[in-house]
Design a protein around this nucleic acid. Structure first.
Lengths: 202, 202
DNA sequence: ATAAAAAGAATGAATATTCGTTCTTTTTGA
DNA sequence: TCAAAAAGAACGAATATTCATTCTTTTTAT
């Protein structure tokens, strides 16, 4: 009887592990071949699982894609959360620190996945809604934690400046993906310069 | 003899027409399903041609993708060329006009194709080299025709500012694609504001 | 405590389609 | 008449998903 709960816990833990295994493998395959180019059998091989086994945890291939989107963005949210905490204290140096965190986000190893997600959002409504959620959160956090530290900004320019920062963040992903020789340090440097301008210019 | 040349010319013209037909159809299908999701048979149907007929003009599917990349970017180059001509005369208002031209580039109907191209560049070297060419041309033109009109910029910041403008242009494409409800006018407005900052700030 | 029973995890071959490409046949235009 | 243009049938490989089956773990009954 007491065993039951214990066994159940173990099963859940195992299932969660398997799901991660699938997502890791799918990420690897999607990066190499894209969402539609990657096949279930190759994903299974990469996960060292059978293809039938994968279908025990994911209804279909699309479900894997959605889950992967969410996992990718949860990392971004964590990055944003750091801004929410330390947002009140420091000033310009805090903005700099916040910007530095984007180094993880544009890691060339995984950034291409983000671009595939943006592309897929244009044709898959489920993906689009996941993207929309994180986009709103991004702007909310900037409004509440970044703008108060910025210089005085004309009210009618606020939304445009936020949009520009969002665009820059998308642009980093695209540049890192399209040009494998691009230096992440330089990309981040350009991002820092532009964001700095957008936040400090009166 | 004189006939021959004429007939030959007509044949070439016809062939060129067929190629455009294929590219139009492929563009339509790629936009709806992505490079790997679109099938030759559906492309053929959209082109109102047979699949075998298509293979008379393109070695394989990849060749269609490459040709489409080049066609897409040739439109962008035309846009850039306008900057090369009128570059010497006017001042800030010219920059504004130049920026306005990007409205065509971010047309939601076709911008998603550009994002797919950037994504594909990350895994297909042929696509990557096409992208690289246009990227260099973009920067060259900005250096020669845009910077002279800009305010004085610290030498060590020039490349970062150009990179930021390139990023913004990528970012527009990504934003327009990922968020179908995004207003192109607002996107372009944010682009204008940011580019203006980057070019006029000392 | 332990053997029998039940449940769940895992497999990989089989399904019906669809894929990109090639081959053969028919139509067209000069 | 005859080469080029066009069509579409034919090819084998690959696709996502399902299914019957086997292996492992957990629960039950003695």
């Amino acid at each position: 009887m007491a065993y039951k709960a214990e066994a159940l816990g173990r099963r859940h833990q195992r299932a969660a592990l398997r799901q991660e295994q699938v997502l890791d493998a799918a990420e690897h395959c999607f990066l190499a071949e894209g969402f539609h180019g990657a096949s279930m059998s190759r994903i299974a091989a990469a996960a060292k699982m059978s293809v039938g086994h994968i279908y025990q945890y994911f209804e279909n291939k699309e479900a894997i894609i959605i889950a992967l989107c969410e996992r990718r963005f949860s990392g971004f949210e964590a990055l944003l959360a750091a801004a929410e905490q330390g947002g009140q204290t420091a000033s310009a140096s805090f903005v700099d620190a916040w910007i530095s965190q984007f180094a993880w986000w544009i890691d060339p190893e995984r950034a291409p996945l983000t671009l595939d997600i943006m592309s897929e959002a244009g044709r898959n409504p489920k993906v689009a809604s996941v993207v929309k959620r994180i986009d709103q959160r991004f702007r909310d956090i900037m409004r509440s934690s970044l703008l108060p530290l910025a210089g005085p900004i004309p009210q009618d320019e606020v939304e445009d400046r936020l949009e520009a920062i969002v665009m820059l963040s998308h642009g980093m992903t695209s540049r890192i993906t399209a040009d494998r020789n691009a230096d992440p340090g330089r990309i981040l440097g350009a991002f820092r310069l532009a964001v700095h301008d957008l936040l400090t210019r009166p």
